[in-house]
Design a protein around this nucleic acid. Structure first.
Lengths: 149, 149
DNA sequence: TATAATTCCTCTAGTCACTAGAGGTTCAAG
DNA sequence: CTTGAACCTCTAGTGACTAGAGGAATTATA
């Protein structure tokens, strides 16, 4: 049985985040000591490790909850889980493509302005009207770069 | 003079977001019609376009505000602006590296589970204890993939 | 010109995944 | 048995929006 601080160190999730996960229903409420402090079991630890890894891989808490539910219900096929992971992968790939373009563009902007000339900054100019944003990646999307896998 | 809806379409920023930017101090409060509706000038439009592009490139609103301030103060050197863009580029590159690793790992997980075998799903297993997360990218960082440029 | 449809207004509250702080309680070491 | 660290609950704040209520202004049609 581990206290919340020990678990936090072991798993690499901060204490308030652990409480948050509990409240969010990602983990069952752990046992308590006589004085009402949380005591985590090894099973809890395992699930938290799972959550940690999934978060590192960019899954949303909602996706993780889904994954756990799928995993616990033995009647589900591997296919469902596989599908979730695959859809996530495609999101990651889309984001990757966007970031690559972004890197190129930023690099272009930065290097074009590497020596401090006075009349008009290229960075500002480039941001005021460059072509990258409208040329590529269907115009309607408009969404900046945010994680919402 | 354009109404907020027209500006939203022209620039590609949603109406509530335009109001939000105003409240956040990213743009000066625009003129109003007799009936107190917002009327945007071409100058406003230009700045909003700038903001749109900078957001697409992943700059935070705080960074953009800084960029604008730097750009308006003619006494600043290009170097300061350049430095901001460069630091941003390094953030982008770090994120790119992380995403590339992530893609590989996800791909590995997904393809190892492509046929629906029944006993234990590889996706779940892989997430429960895979090596990617501890091997690379200094252990303390722990931060999942989030945008906070 | 009257009316209807659309767009606009302000304000509040919700989203996600946490993070920070106040004020009080419990635990483990000495 | 005392001290100090770790724990508790609760509220509120973060960034960058998004959604909705309830009402006013504008625009298009009849």
């Amino acid at each position: 049985m581990y206290s919340i601080g020990v678990v936090a160190k072991k798993v690499g999730i901060k204490v308030p985040t652990l409480r948050y996960y509990e409240e969010a229903g990602l983990i069952p409420a752990p046992d308590r000591s006589l004085g009402k402090q949380r005591r985590y079991s090894d099973v809890d630890l395992e699930r938290l490790t799972f959550i940690k890894h999934a978060r590192q891989l960019g899954f949303s808490l909602a996706s993780i909850a889904g994954l756990i539910e799928l995993g616990e219900d033995a009647t589900r096929t591997c296919d469902e889980i596989h599908a979730l992971a695959e859809s996530h992968l495609s999101h990651v790939r889309a984001k990757l493509a966007l970031l690559k373009d972004l890197e190129q563009e930023l690099d272009r902007i930065v290097t074009s302005c590497s020596s401090g000339h006075i009349d008009g900054c290229h960075v500002i100019e480039s941001l005021a009207h460059h072509e990258w944003c409208e040329s590529d990646h269907e115009p309607g999307a408009s969404e900046p770069l945010r994680d919402k896998f």
